[in-house]
């Protein structure tokens, strides 16, 4: 497989994303966008489809809480289902 790799001309520094400062930047950027989207809701005419979504910020809150909930549950499930890599090999 070695011919599949190019000469490592780029400095072998760790990735841009991996740097602490940069990852913090991304979180700040995302938060900013989220705040903007939240504020925008006051200016956009919303028509609710199901009732519950007429509350301001429903989608954002649901997305945030829902996905944290999913990850949390996954942790529990993982404890239950994780096996060594060679589990099925005999």
């Amino acid at each position: 497989m070695s011919d599949n790799f190019t000469e490592d001309k780029i400095s072998n520094s760790t990735g841009w994303l991996a740097k602490k400062i940069n990852s913090s930047k991304i979180i700040w950027l995302l938060s900013l966008i989220c705040v903007f989207l939240f504020v925008a809701e006051f200016f956009v005419h919303r028509h609710a489809e199901m009732g519950v979504d007429e509350y301001i910020g429903f989608y954002g809150a649901y997305g945030l809480i829902g996905s944290i909930f999913l990850v949390f549950l996954s942790h529990q499930i993982r404890k239950l289902l994780k096996r060594p890599e060679d589990f099925y090999d005999d």
């Binding site: 979180i27 995302l30 938060s31 966008i33 989220c34 989207l37 939240f38 809701e41 910020g57 989608y59 954002g60 809150a61 649901y62 997305g63 945030l64 829902g66 996905s67």
Partner: peptide, 8 residues
């Protein structure tokens, strides 16, 4: 909103 809050 749904997408970005999840991404956050």
């Amino acid at each position: 909103q749904l997408l970005f809050f999840s991404a956050l």
